[in-house]
């Protein structure tokens, strides 16, 4: 019965849905990591933008304008992190932890102030990005049921995998980002301002993460609830690291997390120990990260002849 459920198109459809927010954040993590800064504030950015998404889409009475404004907020938080790390020489991890803490408190405070409720944004008339049925594709057996009838942002996230890949590997700015991340001093010596590149990377990283945050409260769910990022920012960090911080690698690992999430949602309905299923993605990441890092270590040792 479980096997049947896993290979059903409904399950794969749910997997893509659950993957979306993680994927956005994982791509955000890729860009930041490629520039040599770990963006651990993804968690806080997603939480903040999940709330601002609800507020902005209600204020503009347009989900798309709301998304745009939310992306600006995400970019700002990314820039804010960059300012502390680059200008004020703050440790990037501690600065990110501080941002995450502030997000925990501030979202509750703002929610209470705006909606009068301290748990859920029910009283805010927010809008969501709709699901769409894809013409032609929906008629393909099996695949149609998997791919069609997804949220538009899910399609956007899939497109973003290609966009970020092309951006990082086929554009001058992407090259500069990777150069700064590989060797900051070498990049500086050929006239690239590493600070400027990192400002840009972290801001872009914030924008991408904010799309995931917006999706949480305006697509995946229809309202904001406190703490709704629920560790997805950290999972995305892991997905990025295990995927070698490449967009395609991160996408595959994100799918794994999405599948585990969808699986545990199914199992929660039955008598299965869903806690153990929820452990799966974390165990897989630990093992995968170990194997990936080990092979990279061996490769490096071989290259340096040690």
């Amino acid at each position: 019965m479980i096997i049947e459920a896993v290979f059903s198109p409904e399950f794969l459809n749910a997997t893509l849905r659950a993957t979306t927010p993680i994927l956005f954040a994982a791509l955000a993590s890729c860009i930041a990591s490629k520039s040599g800064v770990i963006n651990m504030a993804l968690e806080g950015i997603m939480l903040f933008t999940a709330l601002f998404g609800v507020i902005f889409s209600a204020a503009f009475q347009s989900a798309w304008l709301g998304l745009l404004a939310t992306m600006a907020v995400g970019g700002f938080i990314g820039f804010f992190l960059a300012f502390f790390v680059l200008r004020l020489k703050t440790d990037e991890i501690l600065a990110a932890i501080a941002i995450n803490l502030i997000a925990n408190g501030a979202t509750i405070l703002i929610l209470l102030y705006v909606s009068g409720d301290r748990g859920i944004s029910s009283s805010i008339p927010s809008l969501i990005i709709p699901r769409v049925t894809l013409p032609i594709i929906k008629d393909i057996p099996f695949l149609g049921q998997v791919l069609s009838n997804q949220n538009i942002l899910t399609y956007v996230s899939l497109i973003m995998v290609a966009v970020v890949h092309i951006f990082l590997y086929r554009t001058p700015l992407g090259l500069k980002i990777r150069a700064v991340g590989e060797n900051k001093d070498a990049a500086e010596s050929v006239g690239i301002s590493s600070d400027k590149i990192r400002y840009i990377s972290l801001t872009l990283s914030g924008v991408l993460a904010s799309m995931g945050g917006f999706f949480l409260s305006g697509g995946y769910m229809t309202k904001f609830t406190i703490g709704m990022s629920a560790g997805r920012g950290f999972i995305a960090l892991a997905a990025g690291a295990m995927g070698g911080n490449t967009p395609i690698g991160s996408f595959l690992v994100s799918l794994l997390f999405g599948a585990a999430q969808a699986l545990s949602n199914i199992l929660q309905l039955g008598a299965w120990p869903h806690e153990l299923v929820q452990m799966l993605p974390y165990v897989t990441t630990l093992i995968g990260l170990g194997i990936y890092s080990y092979s990279r270590m061996k490769k490096r040792q071989r290259l340096t002849g040690k």
Partner: peptide, 20 residues
């Protein structure tokens, strides 16, 4: 043993422990 990033693996440990 593998030079894997402590930050990421330690964050994963927390969730592992939670669900366990």
């Amino acid at each position: 043993k593998t030079e894997s990033d402590v930050l990421v693996s330690s964050l994963m440990m927390n969730y592992l422990v939670l669900y366990f």
